[in-house]
Write a protein that binds this DNA or RNA. Structure first.
Length: 614
DNA sequence: ATAGGGTTAG
């Protein structure tokens, strides 16, 4: 609402806000024209900016207003460039930039370039961005602090860290804002170590600087570092705000650290931070991805405002947790509420259909993307449809769909088919899919593992060892599995075969007990080559080595009876672990919730919520 | 008279 500050000076223009209808705008326009007020470039600029900024859907109209003006000045045009740079159609900024350039009596100023650089960042304009940079240098604005920090932001968005460094090196005395922009740029581009060095060297740091560094850690996956820095921020008595908490929550989400996430939620309430849409959405995402979907929905319904992120987060959580019908219900409510779904929303819609097995409905939603919402389906959506057919056992329709994709099928599409082939034990199609997958991603260990499982299922041991040989010769390595469990607010990480935990002795004893009790109840350890889940030297002892089993054992030792064991795993759960976990949930009478890289498994009484499909 | 850095979903 900052635009209202300057506008309030004129009584009529000050009336314009987001609720002003187009008809009312036209009346005001006529009135202003009749009084000759729009000949005043100041008022015109304010009017145009008010229309556009307070309601982006009015941009068209503000353009018309401007077009009817005979000689807009730079202020007026800057206002509209600014409005466009923040809108969903930033490219239209250039129309007005060109106007400035082509008018003999006009010349762009430092404001123009500040906004235009923003536009380029929004557009990820790889070519135009640098050319705007060249333009502003021609006009001699490269030493303007606003322009400089804007350029650093832009190059970070464009993924040109080198250019960020060049701009930054050219700043004689970088101020707080510029330094923060650079910290953020480096962290976003993956050089978080350098970002931290810069951050540590800053002579003074305000909350935004801290937030930049914390979110830098959170965004590059260094969640524990993000949390550590947040604690440091509190120790130093820096004022924590909503944005800080959003990053903290995002770190908790990635760790699957429900206790810490709950603590962060309580912190927000205790400190009376504003429950903004962004913060609310981060909370929903945290609860959903830490396996507490009820709490996620409680937060969801408690919010005053929900945007497309909010709805999509809730829907994604429901789909991930296997609540497909509920996800589709929320989707209907979202539409009733007048919030436009986007591509991300549709990923959840299609996954929900897939989970429920609603093949036709899923296909209709897919079609509606283009027809009803003007959204072009992306690779992910095609992958979802393959999965939709595949899970329903309609493997050849899945294949047919892949064959008719308008673009080259990606690894995700073949991967979805391969997974379906594993579930439905179709060796022939599985071979085809994995061959394609390997063509696309020669080092995709998942393709080999799934293919090997398919061969093993059909007792084709020669082919199993063949797959293993190929993997070896190509140097395909499996990403080390890692499972995380939180106990008393402390996050414990277990890697495959990792015995470094302080209490490993107890864990080993518990693994032994699990194994004994499993055998007693008739479980036969799967030591045949099915378990060639290509983890090399682990076969003989596979039962005890997969990271989730170690984490579950640790949970059984440390968590009180009746407390669910929550595990976050970086890979998909393997077949055997899935079986074993089902049995543990029954034998030890313990609810076990595993978040793998795709979805949730809620194990209870010997059953899993995924019903064997994942 | 219009500026610059931090925050959410696949």
């Amino acid at each position: 609402m900052s635009s209202l500050r300057c506008i309030a000076k004129h009584p009529t223009i000050s009336l314009v806000d987001s609720s002003t209808s187009l008809r009312e705008l036209k009346q005001i326009h006529t009135q202003l024209l009749a009084n000759g007020l729009l000949n005043d470039p100041l008022l015109l600029g304010q009017f145009v900016a008010a229309i556009a900024l307070n309601n982006p859907s009015n941009l068209d109209y503000s353009n018309q207003v401007l077009d009817r003006c005979e000689n807009p000045n730079v202020f007026t045009l800057n206002s509209i460039i600014r409005a466009h740079s923040k809108s969903s159609t930033p490219q239209r900024s250039f129309h007005f930039y060109n106007k400035i350039q082509s008018a003999a009596h006009l010349s762009p100023d430092n404001y123009t370039f500040t906004f235009l650089v923003r536009t380029c960042a929004q557009l990820l304009a790889r070519e135009t961005g640098p050319s705007v940079h060249a333009d502003l240098m021609k006009h001699g604005f490269e030493h303007d602090p606003h322009v400089q920090s804007g350029l650093i932001y832009m190059y970070a968005e464009l993924g040109c860290l080198d250019s960020c460094h060049r701009v930054f090196a050219g700043v004689s005395k970088p101020d707080l804002v510029c330094q923060t922009a650079m910290v953020s740029a480096c962290a976003k581009s993956g050089d978080v170590v350098f970002a931290r060095e810069l951050f540590d060297k800053m002579p003074q740091r305000d909350p935004i600087a801290w937030n930049a560094m914390i979110s830098g850690y959170a965004q590059c996956g260094q969640s524990r570092e993000a949390l550590n820095l947040f604690y440091l921020m509190q120790l130093e008595g820096v004022k924590v705000n909503e944005a800080s908490m959003v990053s903290v929550l995002s770190a908790c989400t990635h760790l699957g650290a429900l206790d810490q996430g709950k603590w962060a939620h309580a912190y927000v309430e205790r400190n009376k931070l504003r429950m903004t849409v962004t913060l609310g959405t981060a909370l929903i995402d945290m609860y959903a991805k830490c396996g507490n979907m009820n709490k996620a929905m409680e937060v969801f319904w408690g919010l005053k405002e929900r945007n497309v992120y909010t709805w999509s987060s809730a829907m994604n959580g429901l789909a991930m947790n296997g609540a497909g019908e509920k996800c589709l219900e929320i989707f209907s409510l979202m539409k009733q509420d007048g919030v436009q779904p986007n591509e991300v929303t549709f990923v959840s819609v299609l996954r929900a259909c897939s989970v429920v097995g609603l093949v036709e409905e899923g296909h209709e939603h897919f079609e509606s993307m283009r027809k009803v919402y003007g959204l072009e389906p992306q690779l992910e959506h095609y992958g979802c449809i393959v999965d939709l057919y595949g899970r329903a056992g309609r493997l050849y329709e899945a294949l047919n769909f892949i064959d008719n994709m308008p673009m080259k099928p990606h690894a995700g599409a073949w991967g979805a088919l391969l997974n379906a082939c594993r579930i439905y034990r179709n060796t022939e199609l599985g071979e085809l899919a994995s061959r394609k997958l390997v063509e696309l991603e020669a080092k995709n260990h998942g393709a080999y593992v799934l293919l090997s499982n398919i061969y093993a299922d059909s007792k084709n041991w020669d082919s199993v060892s063949n797959v293993r040989r190929i993997m070896k010769s190509k140097g395909v390595k499996k990403l080390p599995g890692c499972s995380v469990i939180e106990v008393d607010g402390e996050v414990h990480e277990f890697f495959v075969g990792d015995k470094s935990h302080l209490r490993y002795g107890e864990i080993e004893a518990m693994l032994g007990e699990i194994s004994r009790r499993l055998k007693l109840s008739g479980y036969v350890a799967n030591t045949n080559p099915v378990l060639f889940d290509i983890e090399e030297e682990e076969k003989e002892d596979a039962l005890c080595k997969h990271s989730e089993k170690v984490a579950i054992a640790f949970g059984l030792i440390t968590l009180r009876e009746g407390v669910p064991i929550r595990i976050v795993k970086n890979l998909r759960v393997c077949w055997d672990c899935h079986d074993v976990t089902k049995m543990i949930s029954k034998i030890f009478n313990r609810e076990i919730i595993v978040r793998d890289r795709n979805r949730f498994h809620h194990f209870k009484d010997g059953e899993c919520s995924c019903k064997g499909y994942w």
